[in-house]
Design a binder for these strands. Structure first.
Length: 491
RNA sequence: GUCCCCAUCGUCUAGUCUGGUCCAGGACACCGGCCUUUCACGCCGGCGACGCCGGUUCAAAUCCGGCUGGGGACGCCA
């Protein structure tokens, strides 16, 4: 599929969902999620997107997807797709976009020109190498490694290998009034003249975001804590442009178990990896939202509840650690909660991966129902499903050895004949038959349960006997019992 | 190094703004028990934290200061 068509697909999607918003109060809130397409959507980015999305849906605003691809070297179409796929899986629908910064170069030039004309920007021809050296020297001497303004007064015009720098004030303070963190004051002397247009004519991040947020009418900038230090620079640019500031809210970071930034060595970082591991999107969403945000003691939230209850005020200030423990529990919860039929299609890919022969939706749903309280993930479920899917089960040697004994053979014969004559093959009648057999033989049900279980599933652990028998059906059950019987005779 | 942020059970967190109702509540994980045809589910119980020091106060998890620890930023990356 071409990228164009791909985007169009999402556009269609959006149109369909736009009307939902009219039922919510409109407050003209505009937010955005601006990933840079240099990889897949990861846990941290997903949570930022989720917070923005929830905030916007709660307030009845517009949520924009903007692709920040000004790093031409590292940006790829593949990443754009990966990010949109992940957002689609999490159902983080956007109302506008995706916009691409590389398509908006004219807009940035226009704003760059404004800054040059007003004396707030100047051309600089210091080379990256020189800059690097000066930075290192400053660090070595314990000084803040900032640009000292060598080209400030040279009045260069644009030219090859020249960059445009923003002329930052040397004195005074800039205050960031953060919705989440409160007021943070920065000494302007800490800031330097940052590059806003690179020598290839492409704007840098700090400039492009500001121009985009201004021109797209963004009212609330909600992003990761790692952007706090960029914010005073951006505020200065807003001011130089004479524009009104948006509200800023910086959400605390998510770390790995050793409190270092979340990375591959902490396990899966990409949202789609969690899909592959058999997690349900609602579980990931529920897990992610509780990292930094809370609503009293409540742990489980439906999507509509989240939209209703989400506010920025309930976001905490301290960073959190992402572990899979709660996610696993949440996933198990949602697996239990769903109707078996709803799990059929999400489970199918996992079944296919195991090369099981295909079964009907109804059969699958029946099998799923027996495994819902026993699975933390779809992977676990697909694995546990094996005995439902194969024609012939292979006995676990230890289990067969312990339970498929010669003595149990006679019992099997009786069960086989009773079951063969049974008309209605449901849990209730099954239970009646077994209780009768047990009573006739004068033994405890526990005596025969494990042997039958081994014959039917090959293992000592499984869902309840009667549910298994009902799902498997008479033919398969009788065959398996006969195979078990054969084993007891031939051992 | 400089600047900025953060700090409650192992983890996610409530409580901190508006000190007393908190010898700190919930959830996950872990441990024990019950239920039981196995395994799970479920239910009941247990373990377990206000980083440290000082100050303010009749009273501090809550306010103030310092320390320590962790994180972030300091790019012609975003």
């Amino acid at each position: 599929m071409s990228l164009q068509k791909y985007y169009a697909r999402f556009r269609e999607d959006r149109r369909a969902k736009t009307d939902d918003r009219s039922i919510v109060k409109m407050e003209h809130i505009v937010t955005r999620f601006p990933p840079s397409p240099t990889g897949s959507l990861h846990i941290g980015g997903a949570r930022t997107a989720l917070f923005n999305w929830l905030f916007t849906r709660n307030r009845g605003g517009r949520f924009i997807l903007r692709i920040e691809d000004t790093d031409v070297e590292r940006s790829t179409d593949e990443s754009v797709k990966a990010i949109m796929d992940a957002m689609e899986w999490l159902e983080l629908t956007w109302d506008e976009g995706p916009y691409f910064q590389t398509n908006r170069l004219d807009v940035y030039s226009e704003y760059a020109k404004k800054l040059v004309d007003s004396g707030n920007a100047y051309w600089c021809q210091c080379t990256p190498e020189e800059l690097e050296m000066r930075r290192n020297a400053a660090m070595a001497e314990g000084r803040k490694p900032k640009y000292e303004g060598a080209c400030r007064t040279k009045a260069f015009g644009p030219g090859p290998n020249r960059v445009l720098r923003f002329r930052a004030p040397d004195t005074g303070t800039t205050v960031l009034r953060d919705i989440i963190k409160g007021a943070i004051e920065f000494d302007n002397s800490e800031l330097d003249d940052l590059v806003i247009v690179k020598s290839d004519g492409i704007p840098t991040y700090n400039f492009a975001v500001v121009v985009d947020d201004i021109t797209m009418g963004v009212t609330h900038v909600i992003r990761g804590d790692d952007h706090v230090n960029n914010t005073p620079r951006q505020i200065l640019i807003y001011q130089a442009l004479g524009e009104k500031l948006p509200e800023f809210g910086h959400v605390p970071m998510i770390h790995g178990e050793d409190r270092s930034p979340l990375s591959k060595r902490h396990g899966a970082t990409s949202v789609m990896e969690y899909k592959k591991m058999g997690f349900l999107p609602e579980a990931l969403v529920n897990c992610l939202v509780r990292l930094g945000w809370s609503y009293g003691d409540q742990e489980i939230f439906s999507r509509s509840e989240l939209i209703e209850k989400f506010t920025l005020e309930n976001i905490g200030k301290s960073p959190s650690i992402f572990t899979m423990e709660k996610l696993l529990w949440l996933n198990a919860h949602y697996i239990k909660e769903k109707r078996p039929e709803e799990l059929v299609s999400p489970l199918r890919p996992f079944l296919a991966l195991r090369n099981y022969t295909d079964k009907s939706d109804a059969y699958l749903a029946g099998a799923i129902r027996t495994l819902q309280t026993r699975s933390h993930t779809l992977v676990e479920m697909a694995d546990a499903m094996r005995f439902y899917m194969v024609d012939e089960v292979e006995f676990d040697p230890a289990a067969a050895d312990e339970f498929l004994t010669p003595e149990i053979g006679k019992v099997f014969e009786l069960i086989i004949s009773e079951l063969s004559n049974l008309e209605t093959f449901d849990e209730n009648s099954l239970e009646t038959v077994f209780r009768k057999i047990v009573a006739d033989l004068g033994i405890k049900f526990g005596k025969i349960a494990q042997p039958v279980r081994v014959a039917l599933t090959g293992a000592t652990k499984s869902p309840g006997l009667f549910e298994i028998i009902e799902v498997l059906g008479k033919k398969s059950v009788v065959e398996r019992l006969q195979k078990g019987l054969k084993y007891t005779r031939e051992r």
